[in-house]
Computed example of a mutant assay.
Amino acid sequence: RTMVLLGDSHAYQWGNAFHELGRDLNVKVITVIKSGCSPEVYKITREDLGREYTECDSWRETALDRIAEIDPDVVVVTNRVQQTTTRDGAAQTFGKLKATGANLVYLTDTPYPDFNVPDCLAKGSDTIATCSPKAEHVIDRAELRAMEREVAEEHGAEIVDTIPAFCAEGYCPAVIGGHVVYWDYSHMSGSYARSLAPFLKPTFDKVLAG
């Protein structure tokens, strides 16, 4: 059995979790990822290039063609929600993925602290609380997140709400279970990702059984 993990760097950050999950479930995991590029059809602009990042369109077209060739059992979609997110752009991609016959899983975007968490923690052990932002401050672009999730649901995707793995009681701790949660301002650390395989497993047990 084969599973594809599709997305941008917010998909790449889940790599260690899916490595563990693949071993546990005896599933081959293939990553189809390009940093900064959404799998949904959104216009992406790179400020450092001063232009539209058309390379995302080329990558997306090739990625979707490759996934159709692979004919996977499961396709997992996750990415940072873009400011340019549109319902039609999301529907175009989820429609093509649904047409492959694969079971679809959508992981909601992870929190976005927007400050360098390891640098914050390095200031001293007594700073852990100050490096743990309120959930309301790290769930950015909430309306666009909700819309993208709705489109995924409309196309039959199983939804995994990732926020409970990062936040509780209104806060998103910088350290959980002895793991520093992030390695920069928005991407989770490899060790914390690995620890989340059990969090994901019930969903994938269900999807693969179906």
Rank of each mutant, 00 (worst) to 15 (best):
L107F: 12
D109H: 04
E150I: 08
I159K: 04
T110Y: 00
G190W: 13
R149A: 07
I139S: 07
H137Q: 14
D184H: 11
A168N: 11
H179K: 12
N116W: 07
D114T: 09
A157M: 09
V175I: 14
D114E: 15
T127N: 13
C172P: 06
E153K: 15
E148M: 07
H179W: 06
D140R: 14
E158F: 10
I139R: 14
S125F: 01
D126K: 13
T108E: 10
T162K: 01
A152R: 03
E136T: 13
Y182W: 15
P133R: 11
A142C: 05
H155R: 13
T110C: 04
V151F: 08
I163P: 00
P133L: 01
M188R: 10
D109N: 13
A152L: 10
T108S: 10
V117P: 12
A135H: 04
I176C: 00
D184F: 07
H137E: 15
A174H: 07
A135R: 14
A129N: 11
Y106T: 06
Y171V: 15
G178K: 08
P133K: 06
E154P: 07
V138K: 04
E136W: 00
K123N: 06
D140P: 01
M147V: 11
D119I: 09
L144D: 11
S189P: 14
Y171S: 10
C167K: 04
Y185H: 14
G177K: 10
E154D: 15
K123W: 00
R141D: 03
L121Y: 06
V160C: 02
T110N: 09
G177R: 03
G178R: 09
A129M: 02
T108L: 02
I139N: 08
A165M: 15
A168S: 15
V181G: 02
P111K: 01
T110K: 00
Y171E: 10
S125I: 03
V151R: 03
I139E: 08
G170E: 08
L104F: 01
E136Q: 13
I163S: 02
A142Y: 04
E143P: 06
D126R: 13
T110Q: 09
E153C: 03
A168K: 15
P164H: 11
C167E: 05
I176G: 03
C120L: 05
V117F: 04
D109K: 01
I176A: 03
